[in-house]
């Protein structure tokens, strides 16, 4: 699903985001990405969603070589990658329903189909009764769930989450992680960046650790080493 081949990212001004990353994530995996602040977690996710382009190496996502992808093809790539952010990035002048519907409207789906799918997604995150509310009237956890519903409503094969539980208390965080596990069960590949080491270790999944822009630890290879 995701394949990094010797990937580097230098930001303008000489800041190093990532250096020489080699990485492989298979379809239907659920993977956590950790590391100190400034380690490059967000940068790695941005390369996958093409919010940034790599400065060296090759990035393949879902069978596509992102390094070669033309700018005008980026939107079609992003439709296949659901993205979730710590600050939710909801549109505050629209209802919960309209926010979740946005990816479907963007891909040009019909009215009825949109209604059906949005309600299904809201149902999954337990917010069907809030479809007419304004996002601002929801709690942080609820807003995050709206963001999650929006990320999965178009059924993308891959979902990225950048600190999805950053502002939430442990209980809510746990709920969100349960939600992710459910998506993973139906075949969605997930890559979740987080600081919350306690939460990550409780989930019993593959963990990638970044340090100063380099991949310092991968529980999967460790597991292989042991066997």
């Amino acid at each position: 699903m995701i394949h990094f081949d010797n990937v580097s990212k230098r930001y303008p001004g000489g800041h190093t985001g990532l250096s020489n990353i080699n990485l492989r994530i298979d379809a239907e995996e659920m993977v956590f990405l950790t590391g100190h602040s400034g380690a490059g977690k967000s940068t790695l996710l941005k390369l996958i969603g093409l919010l940034e382009r790599s400065s060296g190496g090759q990035v393949h996502v879902n069978g596509r070589n992102l390094t070669r992808l033309k700018n005008r093809q980026i939107p079609y790539h992003r439709r296949e990658v659901g993205m979730i952010f710590q600050d939710h990035r909801l549109l505050h002048d629209r209802t919960v329903f309209d926010n979740v519907a946005l990816p479907l409207v963007v891909s040009g789906l019909g009215h009825k189909e949109i209604g059906r799918r949005v309600r299904a997604a809201l149902d999954k995150v337990g917010l069907l009764h809030k479809e007419k509310s304004a996002p601002i009237t929801l709690s942080g956890g609820e807003q995050q769930r709206v963001g999650i519903a929006r990320a999965v409503v178009s059924k993308p094969p891959l979902v990225l989450a950048d600190e999805p539980t950053g502002n939430l208390d442990p209980e809510l965080s746990k709920e969100i992680m349960e939600l992710f596990s459910q998506f993973n069960k139906v075949g969605v590949t997930l890559l979740i960046a987080t600081h919350d080491l306690a939460l990550v270790s409780s989930m019993n999944r593959r963990i990638l650790t970044l340090a100063n822009g380099a991949l310092s630890h991968d529980t999967k290879t460790e597991y292989r080493d042991v066997t």
């Binding site: 939107p75 079609y76 002048d93 946005l102 963007v106």
Partner: peptide, 15 residues
Amino acid sequence: TEIEITKLIGATNAF
């Protein structure tokens, strides 16, 4: 912000 978010979820420039 609205434009940024819409681009983020895969809106084309035409949209």
